[in-house]
Simulated assay, not measured.
Amino acid sequence: MNDSRLGVVGSLLIAVVVLFSLSGDAISPLLAGRGLHAVFSEAGGLVEGDPVVVSGMTVGRVEDVELRDTDVLVSFTVDEPDLRVGEGSTAAIKAQSALGEKALSLAPAGPGELPNDAQIPLSRTIAPYDVTQALQSLTDTTSRLDTDRLTTALTAVADTLDGTARSAPQALSGLRRLAESVNARDAELRSLLEHARATTEVLAGHQQDLRAIFDQGTALLTALNQRQAAIERLLADLTTTADQLDALARENDAQLRPALTELRSAVAILRDNRDQLTAALHEAVPMLRTLGEVLSTMPALDAFFANIPPTNAVPGLQDLLGRGTR
């Protein structure tokens, strides 16, 4: 029984080994990480097995460097599962050490994430500096120089400098006088610096007072800002109220205008009546004074008032005036 189980287990192990052997190309990306590509104008010494770094940290390795028609295709893997390589990522070949070891520097950028087997184009890659190409460019540039014009320019410069030989002592003498003047003012400069230092010390000693003044000024400005905001809100409310009253007056103008006219007429009538009553009272004063004098001297009085009905014609008038009075 034990031999049978051992045989089954051995058979399964052999099957797994055969499966890995036959499907290594499909499984290796899963084991090795994400596979990406980058196109460079030149390899710059980068070889298979060199590290792939992001911010100085190794995150993968170079798997292959393939020469194409006019550029180089570098295939590499990224082993960090949490590293997001955006759609705008760039790549560069940089020196890893002073011994000439190279590394593929990856700079993740952009939105999204590059899918497996994606390619970073030539526009987003940087090849290492080529000294040979730089020397070749220097040779081409120097070969196009006009030596005759260069000789003429150098001769003109030499002649100009030769003419300034006589004025050089004067310039040096001027510099010497300037130095003497600065040296003579050294005491004044020292005094100025001392006063500046004293002023700085005074300001430093009143730092708390200045800070309190600034704080109070800040509080004052805050209060002013609040009052300004309140006044602005009040003006806005008053403007709205005025607009509403104006609209109300325009809407009810047909009804309010006749009412106001009648009110003015009633006021005018009341004013006329007030004036007439005032005049009547003014004229009645002498009569009332005379009537009082007569009543005070006589036991009885008969009086006739025009336009006033007799007392027996108005019910209750006798009670009001007195029954025994004639």
Rank of each mutant, 00 (worst) to 15 (best):
L248C: 06
N116Q: 09
L13F: 08
L46R: 03
G316K: 04
A204T: 12
G100I: 04
G33Q: 02
R289G: 08
T58G: 09
L193M: 10
R257N: 11
A98D: 14
A38T: 01
L13A: 14
D3P: 00
L31S: 10
S167N: 04
A300H: 11
L220R: 10
T325I: 13
H37R: 13
Q133T: 13
K102D: 11
P286E: 12
A184K: 08
P111W: 02
V17Y: 05
G10C: 06
V59I: 04
T239K: 05
A204N: 12
G45Y: 09
T142E: 09
V53P: 01
A107W: 00
T139W: 01
A198G: 12
L256C: 05
A279Q: 15
R227I: 07
Q208I: 08
R264V: 11
P115T: 01
S75H: 03
K94L: 13
V285N: 06
R257W: 03
L122T: 04
R227S: 12
V72A: 03
A223T: 12
A184G: 15
P299E: 09
G110A: 05
L270T: 10
R84F: 04
D302M: 12
T290V: 13
P111V: 03
R257D: 07
L6R: 12
L67N: 09
A212G: 10
D246L: 06
L210W: 08
S191N: 11
D3K: 06
L260A: 15
S265H: 08
Q244G: 10
N116H: 11
V18A: 15
I126P: 00
D148V: 14
F305P: 00
G163E: 13
L83A: 04
P115R: 01
R289Q: 12
E48S: 12
L22A: 15
F305K: 02
L122P: 02
T311E: 09
D148Y: 03
Q133K: 13
D302F: 14
Q276D: 14
V39G: 01
T241D: 15
S4W: 07
E42P: 02
I120R: 01
S265Y: 07
A118T: 01
V9T: 10
T70S: 14
E42H: 11
E87G: 04
R5D: 08
S55M: 07
E232W: 02
Q136H: 08
Q255W: 05
V54H: 03
Q276K: 12
S55A: 15
T160K: 11
T325P: 00
S143H: 08
N183Q: 09
L317G: 01
L270V: 14
F20M: 08
D82F: 09
V52F: 02
Q208L: 09
D246H: 10
D243R: 13
V78C: 02
A95W: 11
L192E: 06
S97A: 13
T70W: 05
L73C: 03
P111C: 02
L12Y: 11
L277Y: 04
V18E: 05
E201R: 13
L31E: 11
L22W: 06
R177D: 14
A184E: 15
N2A: 11
R257C: 04
G10M: 06
E101A: 13
R166S: 11
L288F: 08
L234Q: 10
R264P: 00
Q318P: 06
D148L: 10
S4Y: 10
F304V: 13
T142D: 07
A280R: 08
T297C: 06
I120N: 01
D69W: 04
L320N: 05
D253K: 12
N273Y: 06
A153T: 11
T311I: 09
